[in-house]
């Protein structure tokens, strides 16, 4: 099993040139954030987690934007984080399944072992994706002379967000007393969990559909999630919008709800994949 995992990490992560796109994306996103939305904030006050918050903050929910009469701003940057991750993991499993993987699976004898290995690879891919994201956030704050190892959000950013957002239940910035633990959970762990769940779903879908089709289905899933701010089972992806967290809005998602719904989605997806893979035909129908 461990040999297969090492093989997947080597072929699917180390040799996956798409991770370079991830690095470029987060660098571009950071430069954009510093030049435009965060321009008015003294860059020396900016913490690494301010940048992480900016990467995954999202936008006002569509329905609430309608209620407040404000225009809905499409969460392009937020969506790009997930779409890019899906793009990074899109083809590896499918190509392996229809290529070298057959040589491997026949030798290891157990279909389930292969599936577990791919799920571990999926987790590792998300982990590397986030590692690059955090690395860029830290590197950028070092470069601008910000607070690199401050695991909180700066008051200036919170004030700006509270003033900028039109969301009717957005907390007054003075009420946003978020502890370091909560910051790490809702700005790092929750987006990571959501990304992992999305990737796991993408992988399971690839057992039923072609990778490009499952990618499109998943993108549509992300798009629909961007419009809601309700506890709708299955549409947990909006948990990945940090500003929809209860730490920032009065009726937001609780961190435990987000983590739990992601775990459930991952588990169900793993289970469906395992059942499907047990009966999978190694042939392009």
């Amino acid at each position: 099993m461990y040999k297969l995992i090492f093989h997947d990490i080597k072929e699917g992560i180390i040799k996956n040139k798409r991770f370079i796109a991830v690095l470029l994306w987060f660098i571009t996103f950071s430069v954009y954030a510093l030049l435009f939305p965060l321009y008015s904030i003294n860059h020396k006050d900016i913490t690494s987690f301010d940048l992480l918050l900016y990467f995954y903050k999202g936008e006002d929910p569509m329905f609430d934007a309608v209620l407040t009469g404000e225009p809905f701003e499409f969460p392009i940057f937020w969506m790009m984080n997930f779409i890019l991750l899906l793009f990074v993991v899109m083809h590896y499993m499918y190509n392996d399944l229809n290529g070298f993987g057959i040589q491997y699976i026949v030798r290891i004898k157990k279909r389930i072992t292969w599936w577990i290995s791919k799920c571990i690879w999926c987790f590792c891919s998300c982990f590397i994706f986030f590692f690059i994201c955090v690395l860029v956030a830290f590197a950028v704050t070092v470069l601008i002379g910000g607070k690199t190892f401050d695991f909180t959000n700066s008051y200036s950013l919170m004030e700006k967000l509270a003033n900028d957002m039109n969301y009717y239940c957005m907390k007054f910035w003075g009420d946003m007393e978020v502890s370091t633990g909560q910051v790490i959970m809702c700005e790092l762990v929750v987006p990571f969990m959501v990304s992992w769940a999305v990737c796991q779903i993408q992988m399971t879908l690839t057992l039923f559909l072609k990778p490009t089709v499952s990618f499109i289905v998943n993108c549509a899933f992300i798009l629909v999630s961007a419009y809601i701010q309700n506890y709708i089972p299955g549409l947990f992806i909006s948990c990945g919008m940090t500003l929809h967290n209860i730490n920032f809005v009065y009726e937001g998602f609780s961190t435990s709800y987000c983590v739990l719904s992601c775990f459930i989605a991952i588990f169900i997806s793993f289970l469906i994949g395992a059942i499907k893979f047990k009966k999978y035909n190694f042939v392009e129908e």
Binding site: I102, V106, K279, Y280, N281, F282, V283
Partner: peptide, 9 residues
Amino acid sequence: MRAICGLLK
């Protein structure tokens, strides 16, 4: 052949 190899359900 695929069936004998176990590659088909």
